[in-house]
């Protein structure tokens, strides 16, 4: 079946297995998932459920053992390393639990990083990075290094880095896992705002209250989708 034009993610019978010693671990056992543009989806599941494996596949960091995956309408399941790198660069913005900022670089340089690999010329790069930092309320902290920033500020730098390429998909892996509850709430407010601004967001989490910010909660158990719960109708997207 041809993927629809507003589908950001479509997977069909996606599996992923790893050799583990003499046995083979089936981390994903056939996942069919469609996420449309403008959706805000939480992927939940206990550890070992396969949600991290699914996130790596969705994020084009890994390739499936079998099955198909279209990202923004483009089949990516069989692509090689460098093609995947290009797609990660253009299409996906990652937000990690541990922020994963470059310690020696300023906030601005960190946000510029994806644009460097995207071949954006320096002047434009800087302008876009500044814009992204302002979008996450860090316009005054651009020259700070990660160790001069609080945990919440660091996570906002990493969100700016994810947004700076204007990706089709914002993919967050336990974005509040290293933050206290007050800061977590602030970050989730930011995600809500980004969703309202039209971004497609997938948050991988094992915390129910974080997942409840999303409009749709997909629960993974034993490598398969156990439930797919629509909490609210996704907001209409401007054409």
């Amino acid at each position: 079946m041809a993927p629809g034009s507003d589908e950001v993610i479509r997977t069909e019978a996606l599996t992923r297995s790893f050799p583990m010693g003499s046995t083979i671990v089936h981390a994903l056992r056939g996942v069919d998932l469609v996420i449309r543009r403008g959706e805000y989806v939480a992927i939940m599941g206990p550890s070992g459920s396969g949600k991290s494996t699914l996130m790596n596949l969705i994020g084009c960091l890994d390739t499936p053992s079998s099955g198909q995956y279209w990202l923004s309408g483009q089949p990516v399941a069989q692509l090689g390393q460098d093609d995947l790198a290009r797609i990660r660069n253009k299409t996906i913005g990652f937000v990690f639990q541990t922020f994963n900022l470059l310690a020696r670089a300023t906030a601005l340089r960190n946000v510029e990083l994806p644009l460097i690999y995207g071949g954006v010329p320096p002047a434009e790069r800087r302008a876009r990075a500044e814009e992204a930092l302002q979008q996450v309320d860090l316009g005054t902290r651009m020259d700070h290094r990660p160790n001069q920033l609080s945990g919440g500020q660091r996570q906002r730098v990493s969100i700016a880095r994810a947004l700076v390429t204007k990706p089709a998909l914002l993919l967050a892996d336990e974005p509040t896992g290293n933050l206290d509850s007050k800061t977590s709430a602030e970050i989730m407010v930011l995600f809500d705002a980004l969703h309202r601004a039209g971004n497609t967001i997938v948050v991988v989490t094992h915390e129910r209250d974080i997942a409840e910010h999303a409009h749709r909660i997909v629960t993974i158990r034993d490598g398969q989708i156990a439930s797919d719960e629509l909490r609210k109708r996704p907001e209409a997207i401007a054409p």
């Binding site: 460098d82 790198a85 660069n89 990083l113 690999y117 880095r161």
Partner: peptide, 10 residues
């Protein structure tokens, strides 16, 4: 890893 995640090729 970070560089590769945000799009660095080999």
């Amino acid at each position: 890893g970070v560089r590769k995640a945000v799009g660095a090729r080999q």
